[in-house]
Computed example of a mutant assay.
Amino acid sequence: MSPALDQVFKIGIGGPVGSGKTALIEALVPVLLQRGHSVGVVTNDIYTQEDAAHIRRTLDGVLDPERIVGVETGSCPHTAVRDDPSMNLAAGAELLERYGDIDTLLYESGGDNLTLTYSPLLADVYVFVLDTGEGDKMPRKRGPGITDSDLLVINKIDIAPYVRADLDVMSRDADRVREGRPVILTDCLTGTGVPEVADFLAGRRPACSPSA
């Protein structure tokens, strides 16, 4: 790993396709910037850079688009963020060569299933995102993403009434299967719950981080 990567706080964000990983990043970056952090973003798509392009458009005027890079993995998301994260490590190192002030790197995985996890080489903290549209049964399905992630985010809570998802049930089951590990409910479009996610990350930020 690049020595520079050892000095920044690396956040991995994973979850199924459409769960709101990109939306969480787009909502979280302005909060991190307001709190004095310098941010870089690395997204993963198998064959395109759609997520990176979306974040650049959404954060236009907020974050320098050159600080947002996309990795075309050509393989399943597990490989790129867990089994062999070399492409992502290289992308992060390249960002840090260009912007030495970065103290926080957000790595977004490609959409995947409930077994996705991050290599500790790539992420200091791993956030897994679920979508209420997938149904309130999802926490009960378990899987390492749900049970073992540092933080579980239950996103799109605004649509729960329209998809017959009971947020109380979803939250209760998530607490039970995670055995007390943190769970935060969010609506990334309005910002509900996003400051709480930033607070959690602040609590996990290493003391060596330049902006800690």
Results as ranks from 00 to 15, higher is better:
140 R>E: 12
54 H>R: 15
123 A>L: 02
72 E>T: 07
109 S>C: 07
188 C>N: 15
196 E>N: 07
74 G>K: 01
99 Y>V: 04
129 V>T: 13
48 T>D: 08
16 P>F: 09
105 L>E: 10
193 G>F: 12
167 L>E: 06
2 S>Q: 09
19 S>N: 04
16 P>H: 10
110 G>F: 00
110 G>P: 06
154 I>W: 03
115 T>M: 13
183 V>T: 04
54 H>M: 13
153 V>M: 08
124 D>N: 14
129 V>K: 09
170 M>V: 05
149 S>V: 06
153 V>F: 09
29 V>H: 07
160 A>N: 13
96 L>S: 11
97 E>Q: 15
172 R>L: 06
44 N>K: 01
65 P>Q: 00
193 G>M: 11
191 G>E: 12
105 L>W: 11
152 L>Y: 02
133 G>C: 06
111 G>W: 05
136 D>S: 09
199 D>S: 13
168 D>Y: 11
119 S>E: 10
37 H>V: 05
134 E>M: 14
58 T>K: 13
102 I>R: 10
39 V>T: 06
93 A>T: 13
209 S>I: 11
19 S>T: 12
25 I>Y: 02
150 D>Q: 06
3 P>Q: 07
210 P>I: 11
154 I>D: 04
67 R>V: 00
130 L>W: 02
88 N>W: 01
34 Q>N: 12
38 S>V: 12
137 K>G: 15
201 L>Y: 00
174 A>K: 04
168 D>F: 12
98 R>E: 10
29 V>A: 11
192 T>C: 04
88 N>M: 15
30 P>H: 02
114 L>N: 08
102 I>F: 08
167 L>H: 04
10 K>A: 00
143 G>T: 08
69 V>D: 05
114 L>I: 14
93 A>K: 05
43 T>I: 03
127 V>R: 04
71 V>G: 03
63 L>C: 01
36 G>M: 10
174 A>E: 08
44 N>Y: 02
153 V>W: 08
10 K>M: 02
71 V>N: 03
175 D>C: 04
101 D>C: 05
112 D>G: 10
154 I>Y: 02
149 S>H: 05
177 V>P: 10
50 E>D: 13
32 L>T: 05
107 Y>E: 03
73 T>S: 15
129 V>W: 10
35 R>I: 07
47 Y>H: 13
164 R>G: 02
169 V>W: 08
112 D>L: 07
117 T>L: 09
69 V>T: 09
132 T>D: 01
157 I>P: 07
69 V>I: 11
183 V>R: 02
145 G>E: 11
41 V>K: 00
176 R>C: 01
118 Y>N: 03
4 A>L: 07
207 A>L: 14
24 L>S: 09
127 V>D: 10
96 L>Q: 11
150 D>T: 06
125 V>D: 00
161 P>V: 13
171 S>L: 10
15 G>L: 08
185 L>N: 04
173 D>L: 13
80 A>K: 00
92 G>I: 06
153 V>T: 09
45 D>H: 00
149 S>M: 07
131 D>C: 07
129 V>I: 15
